[in-house]
């Protein structure tokens, strides 16, 4: 049986890397006695797949993980029990806040998610931020230069910028932007957005608010894609 879990990453744990968190999940699943399915071969690995990487230092309300649970010798797997046991064993700051049973074959998180919504808190003041946002929104093209394997790559990232606006709420007294950034074929990172237009904005805090799957005209949470059975009653219990 495949299980898709959504969880937070907040507080001190935000400084753990994507790789660190993968290991944390693996060990927590073992401590919580969740029966896992292992790959074949000399070094069997549990079948777990992780969603889009979150930059180290960023917080999130919506990190996803797909887990193959071994239900071969069990009549009943109670998703709620798995989740509450995981929640009591995960480190502070990581908390499961949603789950779905995934039926049949389904595409990976990396393939399905089409955009992410971010809260980006910056060090600059309102005037600077307002003008920067205006210029981002009115530009026909936003050129980002980045280096990859020693070569410079020049991209127009404008099509990836779905939305940029200022939030009403401030964080630690600082201006916060909301941005929705595309993830296909490659994720546009908030840090890249901030340095795509001079004078650059500098990041103070970052939080992923939502991951979105566009299915036709519908914008869905990855827990609600076709083939997923969301465990809605869990949400209150968790």
């Amino acid at each position: 049986m495949a299980l898709r879990l959504r969880s937070t990453k907040t507080g001190k744990i935000r400084f753990a890397s994507h790789r660190d968190i993968a290991k944390v999940w693996e060990r927590t699943l073992r401590v919580s006695r969740v029966p896992l399915v292992y790959s074949q071969g000399f070094s069997p690995r549990p079948k777990i797949s992780y969603g889009l990487a979150l930059p180290t230092g960023a917080e999130s309300d919506c990190e996803y993980i797909d887990i193959q649970v071994d239900d071969s010798d069990r009549e009943l797997i109670i998703v709620g029990d798995i989740c509450s046991s995981l929640n009591s064993n995960l480190p502070p700051g990581i908390k499961i806040n949603g789950a779905s049973i995934m039926n049949g074959k389904f595409p990976s998180l990396q393939q399905t998610v089409t955009s992410c919504v971010w809260d980006i808190t910056v060090n600059e003041d309102d005037t600077k931020v307002d003008s920067w946002i205006d210029r981002i929104n009115s530009a026909n093209e936003i050129v980002l230069r980045r280096e990859r394997k020693g070569k410079e790559i020049v991209d127009d990232i404008k099509p990836q910028v779905y939305l940029v606006r200022k939030n009403y709420e401030r964080i630690d007294g600082r201006v916060t932007l909301q941005a929705e950034l595309g993830t296909q074929p490659r994720s546009l990172r908030p840090s890249e957005l901030l340095r795509s237009l001079e004078p650059y904005l500098s990041e103070y805090k970052l939080r992923r608010k939502k991951q979105i799957v566009e299915e036709g005209a519908r914008r869905l949470d990855p827990l609600e894609v076709a083939g997923a059975t969301p465990m809605r009653s869990l949400v209150g219990a968790l």
Binding site: K12, I13, F15, A16, V31, T56, G57, N89, P91, G93
Partner: peptide, 10 residues
């Protein structure tokens, strides 16, 4: 490697 300074170990 900022995770060296956060504690939170099991």
């Amino acid at each position: 490697k900022p995770a060296r300074y956060i504690g939170l170990e099991r």
